[in-house]
Design a protein around this nucleic acid. Sequence first.
DNA 1: CGCAGCGATACCGTGCGGGTATGGAAAGAC
DNA 2: GTCTTTCCATACCCGCACGGTATCGCTGCG
Lengths: 285, 285
Amino acid sequence: MERLEVRELVYFTAVAEELHFGRAAARLGMAQPPLSRAIQQLERRLGVPLLERGGHRIALTEAGAVLLRESRTVLDAASAAAHRTRRAGRTDPSLVLVIKPGGDGGLLPAILDAYQAEPDALPVELVCSFGERETLLREGRADAALLHLPHHDLTGLDTQDLLTETQLLVMPRSHRLAGRARVCLDDFAGEPLPRWPGASEDASQGPEVHDLGQLLHLIALGRTVAVLPASIRGQLRDDLVAVPVDDAEPTTLVLAWPEHATSPALAAFVRAAAAVADKATGQDG
Amino acid sequence: MERLEVRELVYFTAVAEELHFGRAAARLGMAQPPLSRAIQQLERRLGVPLLERGGHRIALTEAGAVLLRESRTVLDAASAAAHRTRRAGRTDPSLVLVIKPGGDGGLLPAILDAYQAEPDALPVELVCSFGERETLLREGRADAALLHLPHHDLTGLDTQDLLTETQLLVMPRSHRLAGRARVCLDDFAGEPLPRWPGASEDASQGPEVHDLGQLLHLIALGRTVAVLPASIRGQLRDDLVAVPVDDAEPTTLVLAWPEHATSPALAAFVRAAAAVADKATGQDG
DNA sequence: CGCAGCGATACCGTGCGGGTATGGAAAGAC
DNA sequence: GTCTTTCCATACCCGCACGGTATCGCTGCG
């Protein structure tokens, strides 16, 4: 059985994503001819054509599309292996939790307090990231993440539900809907919604935002509006208003971590978070 | 960021599993010195010691144990990438279903019939394997598998429940429990249970079996007994008897396939299996 | 103290991964 | 139609890193 090397997969993903040998080579920091050869060799070893060479434009074959998808999981796994091994070798172990700024539903202080009371507790390192939080998990750069359902793909992750919230439309006071007690999705169907880096490249042509402060600022300027969990209320500026969106699917804040995780420190954190979530939902509802 | 290569992970897993450079090198078909160097280089690049060199005996460090686990997932993913890509490039596509001989709960003929009526149906290639069925899935050598819960780890797989069955103790007519109308687990706690290749290496010191015929033969010879799903009834030899085990957890036959699968042929197969299972449970219960 | 087992080091050859120069075919301009 | 541009493939060369052989050094045991 022919071995399949990480280097080849990196090369192939570059070509498959660029659909252009020259640009792919540039992105990889190498010349184009060796890249061509590497792909040819990969095709020979697999015994399968991966690209359609139609002269100028190249396209993925069916097998090529499969390999592109599989390659991404291999590369993620390899990346995760490196990161997790390095972290396991550190002498000052810590638990890395990645959050969306403002996206903790107000539970985080209580969770951190409860966690520090656990016997297996480690120092918690907080990392803030707007997009790509699940990527950080999958690549082993974080131990756990706070994610919002249904906006994330949870395959390969274990999760603990923390909080289910209704969603609010956040807009400037001057907005035509600002006086309403409630709205529905159709009311603002045409408005530009913000894009986050790393999110899907789909239609929403709104501005790209990188943190909550920037988002609220852009909303205040009337450049966009946003649908956010109800717990955002406490963090709104005076010049913004928020009203419930009746037909928006409720969002669930979940704690997510990689499958197969074995660290007792992580287990303790999950316990603490679950306990806090239980208490909170008991109070609220 | 330093790249992590598949070759290095293969080397490391060999050493980590053998805990012996000489044997690991032999297993890899290479000499011992380059293997030593490769591991050293890996440790340097990760900046983390992976092995404790205590003179004669070597042992895994904490980081080494992490890397061993992560390496296995990377290697599985790489293996799966190769297999799935090759299979996607075949001009005579087929759906590979791996089953345990005798372990289909009697549903398989109906499922295959229903599947062939689907528009996206492909020829179905049946592969029989006693142990390691989930490994075949994870390594991309099969598209779907029939597994029995709770005996399998389903992380990374999607599943469709097909059939939940009570379990029977299968034994020779001469067995001391053969006359009973029902038994419980304690009744035969001391008896040797069979082992399957690839299954966990735990206590059960019974004979190793590779297929159903062999197992039934060994039972008839009084060398072992087995706990099997109720649907085995139709396949028993005359010299065997089966009685319900009251306190054995019911077993569920599930159809499993890799997460993220996109093939319409597989989707059609899942639909067909679900339909047959629905009809069957509707009839039975 | 000597021997045996095993991992580390030293040194060497070669195969392969990568670079430069160039060829050749397909799409676009006129 | 032909000239040009664009891009991938081929040809050739080089350096390095991977793998092999020989040997050392340490450790545990008889």
